[in-house]
Design a protein around this nucleic acid. Structure first.
Lengths: 344, 344
DNA sequence: CACCAAAATGGAAGCGCTTCCATCGAGCAT
DNA sequence: ATGCTCGATGGAAGCGCTTCCATTTTGGTG
């Protein structure tokens, strides 16, 4: 029955005191480089890894990180996105010896600030992870900070990113990537189904999209429609477009759900995808491989975002400060996009 | 800055020693009922909750639970199912102060027993969560037990359920529910797309399905085809059925992915769902709401299964024994099923 | 070369809990 | 009554780590 080695084993092996090992562990100051190295080597040889439980217990710091996701009663929850965030956050917490507490708050609720304050008061978490559109709600963020809780905003817009810890992707570049893809295929008349205006990240995606069109010499304002990220709103937006007989050869959507909805509307209207109209999504949810045809979309590392958020929170414990982490994204080209057929 | 109350606070409030509170906490023996009650009340009043970190540290038990999911290189991983399991397991671990370690093992790999042994040897987890088809691999389970690790089988077949801890749903009844639904709508000729034979739970679903048909007076063997749970295999199975011109009015599938595949094949063949053919799935993945038409399916509480699995593992620590937890499931009737039209 | 601040290191306490062992009565047979 | 067992309770140690403070070492200065 092999017992994991402890900090004392390392200390003994390195010929130093336990405290010194602890300092090395926490990148503490006042350790001579050679001592540090010796301790490092001892850790290596013993295959040592810290016991997060013990660490958390000793340091006595709050052991909880709170994940708040938006959940309006009317809107169906974006289960994939939220599940991904929770999964990532849990992984991060697990690795760092924290507990995750998940809460839902209605972003429309007038009362949400008071609500947050009372939650924070009861729990005193070590940090708060906010997802859109809460991560763009500056007043909400400020309420949390006033309560002395470190905040990290996930996929937030520029304002939030410049005032608290943040993780996300370069939304604007991601949007540009989609626009460039469509433009390079030869599409000139493109429709865009946007997300809700409070969702700053989606707005940035749209800006990037416009950039790409402009760079490709397409200066006409594209036809746009605003959805609320649900499948249903995608259906409705596309139906609206068909009703108006807008002559587009491609429709870009601010997320996959709306793209799937749009595809359904097009299917119903007996329009072939991508022959008649190309469609793009955003997020690369599992659904994008299931719909027909498989959806061209942007893969966003949702789990990694949340995991990173936890680390950020722990690293910047009480240091306050602004830190903006951008994670990589990727355009996944599938069969829902092709060059426009010479017809429209 | 409110500090959470500790076991000592409770002890003081109840006028007993710390140990006694600990005994109450762990349902230990040798505490007089009235003392127990007094302690309980004190806990209540102080809003006490155990510090799992401290508990885990003190009890010195392994702090890790290992989730092993099957992952063959050829087969696309069932991301929704696996993500759900991981999410649930993480929640459970988080609540109980355990860490979750996730591993993937190829169930086809001859070498998997040795592989498992070496993993277990290195990590010594407090328990092992096995998902199908590994949870039906008796020899695999035995290997783990021989290494002295408690095992819980998720969604396993009867053999595994009778030899280790297990959580799942009553697969047979769930299958019966689907069969009864279809039969009650008036379908007499029904096709069934099965899962792989090693997947015992899927086989049970099929048995239950047959039971229902028999109960409805349908004694003909239904037309069946075996898939591997992938979207693609669903497409192929349905195409096979169409090629053979089997005169079914409904197709039941062992999971949602195959159902979605079958639907695609039917769409391509210009068959309307549910007018020409009804389709059912199993699992209620998010996809079932996205496909067109929305899929009638059985909702299985995947996250809860995994969460329960963790609890089982911890409760039965070193007690060995067999325990079979059945969680509730639910038939979700959507638009992919209707009475057969008077045509076939 | 003595002197001192600053850097490097170590000792000890304690986080909240469990576990091991000792203690204390009560109830029972002798 | 006396001795014993057994159920109920408490004392003390310690899990692996951090933190506070004391101590030793270093290297720069006059």
């Amino acid at each position: 029955m092999k017992r994991n080695s402890t900090i004392d084993d390392v200390a003994r092996a390195a010929g130093v005191a336990r405290v010194t090992v602890s300092r090395v562990l926490n990148n503490g100051a006042n350790v001579r480089p050679e001592t540090r190295e010796r301790v490092r080597r001892a850790m290596q040889e013993l295959g040592y890894s810290v016991n997060q439980q013990a660490r958390a217990l000793a340091s006595g710091m709050a052991r909880e990180i709170m994940l708040i996701h938006a959940h309006s009663p009317e809107l169906e929850p974006n289960s994939y996105y939220n599940a991904g965030l929770e999964l990532g956050a849990l992984r991060g917490c697990s690795a760092l010896g924290f507990d995750l507490v998940t809460r839902a708050v209605d972003p429309e609720e007038k009362n949400r600030f008071r609500q947050l304050s009372s939650i924070l008061d009861g729990q005193r978490p070590a940090g708060l992870i906010l997802s859109p559109p809460l991560s763009d709600d500056i007043e909400f963020i400020e309420t949390a900070r006033r309560a002395g809780v470190q905040v990290v905003a996930v996929s937030a817009g520029e304002q939030a990113r410049s005032s608290v810890l943040a993780v996300g992707i370069d939304e604007r570049s991601a949007g540009r990537l989609v626009g460039a893809h469509l433009a390079s295929l030869g599409h000139r008349r493109i429709g865009f189904i946007k997300g809700p205006p409070e969702h700053r990240a989606a707005a940035l995606r749209y800006d990037g999209f416009l950039d790409a069109l402009r760079e490709a010499g397409i200066d006409d304002e594209p036809w746009t429609m605003t959805g609320d990220f649900t499948f249903k709103s995608g259906v409705e937006a596309a139906e609206q477009l068909l009703r108006e007989s807008v002559p587009v050869t491609a429709i870009a959507c601010a997320n996959d759900d709306m793209a799937a909805g749009a595809m359904l509307a097009l299917h119903r209207a007996r329009l072939d995808i991508p022959e008649a109209i190309s469609v793009t999504g955003f997020d690369d949810t599992p659904m994008s491989e299931i719909v027909w045809p498989p959806l061209t979309t942007v893969r966003q590392p949702i789990k990694d975002l949340a995991e990173r958020a936890v680390h950020l929170l722990v690293e910047h414990q009480s240091k306050g400060g602004v830190h903006n982490d951008l994670l990589p994204f990727e355009l996944i080209v599938r069969e829902s996009t092709s060059r426009p057929t010479a017809r429209a």
